[in-house]
Design a protein around this nucleic acid. Sequence first.
RNA 1: GCGGGUGUGGCGGAAUUGGCAGACGCACUAGCCUUAGGAGCUAGCGCUCACGCGUGCAGGUUCAAGUCCUGUCACCCGCACCA
Length: 801
Amino acid sequence: MRYDYTAIEKKWQKIWDDEGTFCATTDYSKPKFYGLVEFPYPSAQGLHVGHPRSYTALDIVARKKRLQGFNVLYPMGWDAFGLPTENFAIKNHIHPEIVTKDNVANFKKQLKSLGFSFDWSREVNTTEPSYYKWTQWIFLQLYKNGLAYKKEMAVNWCTSCKCVLANEEVVNGVCERCGSEVIHKVKSQWMLKITEYADKLLDGLNDVNFIDRVKVQQSNWIGRSYGTQVKFNTTIGDEFEIYTTRADTLFGVTYMVMSPEHPLIEKWAEKIENIDEVRAYQQSAAKKSDFERTELAKDKTGVKLSGVKAINPVNNTEIPIFISDYVLISYGTGAIMAVPGHDTRDWEFAKKFDLPIIEVVAGGDVTVEAYTDCSEGVMVNSGFLTGLSVEDAKKKIQEWLTEKGIGFVKTNFKLRDWVFSRQRYWGEPIPMVHCDKCGYVPLDESELPLLLPNVDSYEPTDTGESPLAKITDWVNTTCPKCGAPAVRETDTMPQWAGSSWYFLRYCDPHNDKELASKEALEYWGPVDWYNGGMEHTTLHLLYSRFWHKFLYDIGVVPNPEPYAKRTSHGMILGENGEKMSKSRGNVVNPDEIVRDYGADTMRLYEMFIGDFEKAAPWSSASIKGCKRFLERVWALADIITDGDDYRAEVEAEMHKAIKKVTEDIETLKMNTAIATLMSLINTITATGKITRGEFKTFMILLNPFAPHITEELWVNAGFEGMLNGTQWPEFDEAKCVDSAVEIVVQVNGKIRARINVPVDIAAADAIALAKGDENVAKEIDGKTIVKELYVPKKLVNIVVR
RNA sequence: GCGGGUGUGGCGGAAUUGGCAGACGCACUAGCCUUAGGAGCUAGCGCUCACGCGUGCAGGUUCAAGUCCUGUCACCCGCACCA
C-alpha cells in the first residue's frame, strides 16, 4: 500500500476535530501541563513557515505530556487588532472586521492542516467584544490603581503609520513595524506606569526559568542603576539636581551639563547673557530626529551658559554650566556633573571645549583618556576622600551628602513608562470619558465592553487625531460622574494590550463574569512552558509580565509570574540564508509543502533543520530526507512479526532510543531525537523484521513528531484504540548497555587498534588484551611502558618512551 | 562603546564528567533495478598518493583537548551618549 499522506492526514484531522481529542479537561485533580506558543497575528499573507517551528516544538512536548498522563492545555487564538489589517482594509475598502474574519479562517485552516494538537474549544480572539471587554476592564483597574495616566509629552510619532509608538517599538530611530522615520511630536497620551514595576520585573527574573539571553535582554532594558542624586547651588541662588553613579568623583567635577530641554533654562532665561545662542542650540537639538541622534557620529556639541555658574558642594568651587544634547532629559534629572577625568563622554567634551581635567582616582593617565575603571583605583586630590578606595569613597561621600541634606541615594531605571494610546481605528477603545468639570472619568464596569463603533471611514488623520474623533455620535456622551455632556477618549489601545493577558483567558475562555475563574487560574497557572520569538523580549514578554504582576497585586491571579519557563526559537531563513521576504523572493509557502510532502514531513523537517534556538536556512533538498524516512516508516508495516518483546539484538538500542527521545523532547533537541529514530529504523530494517512490541514503541516515540502516519499505522496494525490514548514507553537504564563494546587502543594517545571486550572487563584484562593486538605490540615493542590507562567502555591508552 | 552569542566536511548539523571528531540527513560518486525517472536499492563519501594532517588562529595544561586555561581574529544578535 502506498503512503497516501494527503488522505491519511485529512482523515485523522477530521477524527481529532470530531472527537475533541486534544481538549483539556476540567478534571482539576490530574497533574496539569500548560504549554503555550505566541498566538499569531492573522495577516493577509497567511502562515509563514516560521510559525510552525515554534508550534511544532511545543506540540511535540504537549503530545508527549498527554501520553505521560498530564492534563494538557495547549491553546491557540488570534492577536487580531493592529495596523496591517487596518491598512489592508483601507486599501481594499473592506471593513477590518471582515478582513480579520477572513484571515483567521485562512490561518485556522492552515494550522489544522499541520495537525497541531491545539484545544480549539478554547480559541480566543482579541477583537471580539467578549474578549476585549476584559482588556478594557484591566485598563480600568490600572487606572483606578493610579497606573494609567494621561500626560502631554513628546512622543515617538511614525510618519507613515500616523500613530504614536512606544519606546519599545522604535528600533534604530525608525518604526519597528514599517521602517519609516520616527519624529518627536508633543501629544497628550495615555501612559501606563510600568516603571512602578521596574524592580519587581527585574527581581522576578530570579524566580523563573527563562533562557539566559531573554533574562539578560530584559534586565538590560530595565537598566537599573544605583547612584546618588546631588543638589548643586548656583551663583544666582537657584539649586538644581543631578544624578550620578560616581559620587566618589565629586572633587573631579570641572563643569556641569544640562539637557537642552531642561526646564531651568527657561526660568533662567533673563539671567543667561547668551540666551540667543542657547535658544539656537535648543532648536537645532529639537530638530534632530532619533535617527540622527543615534546614527550620526557622536561628535560632542554644546553651549556654555554665560552669567550663571554652579557651585560644587564639596569644595565651593564655581564651575561652568553647559547645555548639550549628549545629556538626555528623559533619564535621571536631565542634568549631570561632568568628571572628564573618569568618564569617556565628559572627557571628549572637555577636550573639545578645552576644559580642565582633574584626576581624582589614581591608576590611569587622564591626559590620554578617561580612567573609568573603579575596581582598584585609589582616591587622590579629593579632600577628605583622598586615600580611600573607590568603593569606600562612594559610601563616605553618600553619608556626607545625606548628612548635609544635599544628596541622597537613588536608584534609576532606563525603562520608561509605556505610551498606551494609538491614533488608529482597529484597536480596543479606551474606556474613558472626558468631562470639562470632572476631568477624565472611567466608564463604569457595567458599561463594558465599550464597543468599537462600526463606521465606513477609518483612515488615519494627518492631524494626529484618532479616526474615532470624527464619529460624533459615539464621541459625544455624558459624564458617568456628574451627567454633564462629555466626550469619549478617541485613541485606542496598542496591539500589545490584548496579548498582555490572553494566556489567562485560555484557562476559562467562555466566562462572562470574570476574565477567568479563580479555580481555573489556580489550576492552570502559571504557564509551564512558553515558547516565542526573541523579538518580543522587550515588548510583549515584558508588557505581559507587567500586567500579570499588577493583576497579582490586586488579587486577580494567584501567581506573581505568568510564565514558569520561556524558550525561544531561531528564525527560518530563506534558501539563500537571508531573511524570508516577498521582496527577496525567497518565501516558502507552507501550503505547498503540505501539498507536496505532507504535514508529517513538514513537521519532521522543521524539527530536524538544526539547533532549535538558532536561525536555519530552509533547504528544499533536505526536506526529502525526512520524506524518505517516513516512507521507510510506512514500509515497517510489511515486516511486522509476532512478539511483544524486543529482540535481544535490538533491545539495548530500543531502550537507548526511548531514553534519548524522552530527554531530547524536554530540552527541545528535536533534531537529535529524530536522528535517533532514524538510526533505530536503520538497525531494525537491516534485520528484515520488527516485532509488534518494537513496532509499538517505535510508533509511540515517533507520534509526537509525525502524528498522522503513526495513528494510521497503529490502526492498520490492529492495535486497540487511538495511539494518542496509550502511554509513553519506559526505558530501563540497565538495559541501555550493550553486553560487549568496541574500545579503542591508543599508544601515546594515537589510535592503533580497536578491540571488542565485554562491558564489565577488568582493567588489567583489557590492557592485556590490548597489548596482544598485533598493531599495538608493534608500537610498544622495545620501548619502556610509562603508564597504562583503561577508561571503561571507551579506551585503553598505553604511554611508552 | 557595552551586553549576549557563534566559529566543526561541499551543506544543515552531531559529539555525557576532557576519552574513537564528523552521529543523523542533504548533496555528490559508482553499481543495480526500471520503458523512463526529480522514484527505489546497494556501496562509497573530512583532507592527503602517502608518512600523516585535521574542530577560526596562536600558545598552554594533560597519558588524552572541539570540550579546560591564556591571548587573538572573524561573524551574528541586542542596547546604544542611561551619567
